[in-house]
Amino acid sequence: MARKASTQRKVLVTAIAWTIAFLIFFPILWTILMSFKSEGDAIKAPFDMLMSPWSFESYAEVQTRSNYSRHFMNSVVISLGSTLLALVIAIPAAWAMAFVPGRRTKDILMWMLSTKMMPAVGVLIPMYLIFRDFGLLDTRTGLVVVLTLINLPIVVWMLYTYFKEIPGEILEAARMDGANLRSEIIYVLTPMAVPGIASTLLLNVILAWNEAFWTLQLTTSAAAPLTQFIASYSSPEGLFYAKLSAASTMAIAPILILGWFSQKQLVRGLTFGAVK
C-alpha cells in the first residue's frame, strides 16, 4: 500500500501487539528465568524470585539426577531417524506423483492423508501388543518405526507440493540441452528440490520431537525421549520448580530455535498446501 498509516495509529498498534505477544510468550519466558534460580528462590513470590541471585545449579542437578543427555539423545535419534526414514520412502513417491501424474495420483494422495486422520487410540492396543511381543517396547527402533509411519503422509504431501512447483519446462530444457536422466536429476532436479526437502525435514523433526502420544505409551526409561522425561516430573518432582524449569528449557530450546526458522513452511505443511 502506498498510503502511510498515521504515526499515532502505528504507535497504538505497536503497543497492543507487543503487550499481547509478551503475554503469550510469558509462560516460556518465566520458565527460562526460573531455570536460573535456586530451588528456594523459585517458589518465592514473582517479584522476589526475579530479584534473587542467578544460578546454574538446577541445570547441573537435572543432569546428575536423571541423565538428561541420554533422553536428549533419544529425542534426537528418534526424531531425526524417523524423519530421514520417512524422507527416503517419500521422496521417490512424491517425485513420481508430481512428475508422472496418473489417473489415480489424486486418489492416492487423499488416501494417504486419510491415514493421518485415524486416531491413535484406535490402534493403541494392537500396537502395544505387537511391540510387547516383538520386544520393541521402550526401544528407539520401535519408536522410529511408529513415528515414521504417522508422519509419512505429511512428508509425502509436503514434498509433493514442493516438487509440483518445479516447472516441467525446466526439466524439458535440460533434456533439450542433452542431459540424460542421471544428469537431469543431479544437476537440475536435486538442486531445485533441496530447499523443499530441507523444510520438510525441519517441520517433520519438530513434529516428531514434540509427539506425545506414542512416545508416552511405548517408552518408559531406556528409550524415553524428552517428552516422557518431562512427564516424569508430573509428580512429585514437579514441585521442584527450578529443576522442572531447567529440564523444560533444555527440552524446548532446540525445537524453539528450529521452529522459528520454519514458520513459513509450517503453515504449508500443516495445512497440506491448502493455505500458502
Binding site: 499481547i20 505477544a21 503469550i24 510468550f25 509462560p27 516460556i28 520458565t31 519438530i206 520431537w209 514434540n210 506425545a212 508416552l216 524428552l226 517428552t227 516422557q228 518431562i230 512427564a231 523444560s248 527440552a251 524446548i252 525445537i255 524453539l256 528450529l258 521452529g259 522459528w260 514458520q263 509450517l266
Partner: peptide
C-alpha cells in the same frame, strides 16, 4: 506469538 506451538505438550 508463534513460540508456544513449538513447546512439547508435556512441558
Amino acid at each position: 506469538v508463534i513460540a508456544p506451538f513449538f513447546v512439547m505438550p508435556t512441558v
